[in-house]
């Protein structure tokens, strides 16, 4: 009996996951290859054939490619600084973590109030006499401003989650390794590059996978700041599901997001693989 007990205790949670996660997931996968009661790939061809698909796909990729490296660099820098603090460490961590408590839509709205025509940025520009009258920053003529605004909002909103993971990871590296690096002639940069970074791989894996998956699912911030000016995969999924009432095509979009997420997760796991025996 005691042998079975752990499984028995895990049963409710497992059943819950199967019922409310695995079942809907299979349902969506099924929907994506089903049209008018027959199995077909037509949903995917409709999706791929639509003129917005490749824009949405590449916008999503580009956003992830810009946002994640910036966040990684910032999170690493911030985590290195926070780890070295003698006191006030937890207060700083709390302050950095504030944006984590805000929903992504609210974050989008905050940055909208900065960039919109009657927003802070415009009133400063006018107040300083740089422009005569407020300019339309988030218009369709300059989607690159929308892009920058989204990057800013995303960096502001979600860097802290990476930092928190990396701070925890750095805390797990025994101090002696850093001291050994010091004694054996490493400069600060060499120590970071040759000792801290490689030993941080497991935490980097977690942080990157989490962030990259979230980056592919970017939605509310994009909608708040760009409306339909900057389509991304998630906003297209929403559009097909609710505006076009095309459940199958929406499911196909969802499968694409899933596929991309899985592919990148595997890539990150491979790239940051720590061989057995080389673990801390």
């Amino acid at each position: 009996m005691p042998r079975l007990l752990p499984y028995l205790l895990l049963l409710p949670a497992t059943a819950f996951l199967c019922l409310f996660f695995l079942y809907p997931f299979v349902q969506v996968a099924h929907d994506s290859v089903m049209r008018n009661g027959v199995y077909t790939l037509e949903n995917f061809s409709r999706m791929a054939g639509h003129w917005k698909f490749s824009t949405a796909f590449w916008n999503t990729m580009l956003l992830a490619a810009v946002v994640v490296p910036i966040q990684l660099a910032m999170a690493l820098t911030m985590a290195s600084i926070v780890t070295k603090l003698q006191r006030g460490r937890s207060s700083i961590l709390y302050i950095f973590a504030i944006p984590l408590g805000i929903s992504d839509l609210a974050a989008g709205l905050i940055w909208l109030s900065v960039f919109e025509q009657s927003g802070f940025l415009n009133s400063w520009l006018v107040g300083l006499g740089i422009v005569d009258q407020p300019i339309l920053l988030l218009g369709y003529q300059n989607t690159w401003v929308i892009f920058i605004a989204i990057v800013l909002a995303e960096v502001w909103r979600a860097t802290a989650i990476m930092m928190v993971i990396l701070v925890a990871g750095m805390g797990l590296i025994p101090k002696e390794y850093g001291e050994a690096a010091d004694v054996f002639g490493a400069t600060r940069w060499q120590k970071f590059r040759r000792v801290t970074l490689p030993m941080l791989k497991p935490s980097l894996q977690t942080a990157l996978i989490l962030r990259v998956i979230l980056a592919f699912e970017v939605f509310a911030v994009v909608v708040a700041l760009g409306g339909t000016q900057l389509p991304v995969l998630m906003s297209e999924t929403y559009h097909w599901q609710f505006a076009m009432q095309e459940r199958g095509v929406a499911a196909a979009f969802a499968m694409v997001i899933l596929g991309v997420s899985v592919a990148f997760t595997i890539l990150i796991l491979r790239l940051l693989h720590v061989p057995k025996g080389a673990r801390v």
């Binding site: 025994p174 002696e176 390794y177 001291e179 050994a180 010091d182 004694v183 054996f184 002639g185 490493a186 400069t187 000792v195 490689p198 030993m199 791989k201 720590v274 080389a278 673990r279 801390v280």
Partner: peptide, 21 residues
């Protein structure tokens, strides 16, 4: 001076042999 400019080497109590190398 920082440790690296002192011309020393050290053996640590817990060895501090880098696990990733």
């Amino acid at each position: 001076l920082p440790p690296r400019e002192r011309g020393i080497a050290m053996v640590f109590q817990n060895y501090a042999v880098f696990p990733h190398l």
